[in-house]
């Protein structure tokens, strides 16, 4: 059995992947048990793989092996500190989990000064663009003017330190909203592309990886019988779904 699976693993993998793809896409027609079942397979595999990967790639070689194989016994303290996370399940001592969460949050928050400096200081510097000179064409100068107008208008839109009562600030902020729409339009256009790519990726698999496998399987009689039965089942299921439920008719009557 194991040898047979090992021998036919590539084909089995492709068939399983196609089945999984159809199971998830079936939700597009309507919510169904087939979809829910595969959703649980997904959750089980994702969490199971997570446990395996974390142990095999990190805790095993970075904690267990140094402690047990290399004799660095003091790593045992890491387990004690790590166990503090699980106090969140105790109603009485849940606060202990906050100590360790606090440490991690503090470490993440402590980087704020560096992040601010490294990320935004170069941006501020780069925003000081020359309008003319240095071999700039009229087009380049115009681009810089566009940049300044949009930057200042958009920043004024986000400036909430005083009310936008003055006509100049009000209009600048309104223009900023218009310019932000260009940015959001760009994000939206790119988002459509990104999401479509993921869908195309699945279809590419179905057409170019699963398609040839179907061609091979089609040559066998059992496959034709299975497909025939599946089609009949699908038609019956669709007919049953389109029939109005009896209980509902009774209420309406």
């Amino acid at each position: 059995m194991v040898t047979w699976i090992a021998k036919n693993a590539p084909a089995i993998t492709i068939w399983c992947a196609a089945l999984s793809t159809f199971a998830i896409y079936s939700v597009l027609y309507a919510e169904n048990r087939f979809y829910r079942f595969f959703e649980h397979i997904f959750i089980g595999l994702a969490t199971g793989y997570g446990v395996y990967a974390t142990w095999a790639q990190i805790l095993g070689p970075k904690w267990w092996d140094p402690m047990v194989k290399q004799g660095q016994w003091y790593w045992a303290f890491a387990a004690v500190v790590g166990s503090m996370f699980y106090f969140m399940y105790s109603r009485k001592h849940a606060w202990i989990s906050r100590v360790i969460f606090g440490l991690f949050m503090g470490l993440a928050a402590g980087g704020m000064f560096r992040e601010f400096y490294e990320l935004y200081f170069p941006q501020i510097g780069s925003s000081m663009k020359p309008i003319a000179g240095h071999g700039m064409s009229v087009w380049d100068s115009l681009n810089v003017v566009v940049f300044y107008v949009i930057l200042l208008a958009c920043m004024s839109y986000f400036f909430f330190s005083f009310d936008h009562k003055n006509a100049a600030t009000k209009k600048t902020a309104a223009a900023g909203r218009w310019f932000l729409m260009i940015g959001f339009g760009a994000i939206f256009g790119a988002t459509v592309m990104g999401r479509m790519t993921l869908f195309i990726g699945r279809f590419n698999f179905l057409i170019n990886d699963w398609g040839p496998q179907v061609k091979i399987a089609w040559a066998t009689l059992p496959f034709k019988i299975v497909i025939g039965l599946a089609v009949v089942w699908l038609i019956v299921a669709l007919i049953r779904r389109t029939k109005p439920p009896k209980a509902k008719i009774a209420i309406e009557e």
């Binding site: 990320l119 170069p122 941006q123 510097g125 780069s126 940015g183 760009a186 994000i187 256009g189 790119a190 988002t191 592309m193 990104g194 999401r195 790519t197």
Partner: peptide, 17 residues
């Protein structure tokens, strides 16, 4: 990045980061 993230990265390209 995925395309969704790309539009937001242009300021960093402009600043050479």
């Amino acid at each position: 990045p995925t395309a969704v993230m790309a539009a937001e990265a242009y300021p960093y390209i402009d600043s050479g980061q």
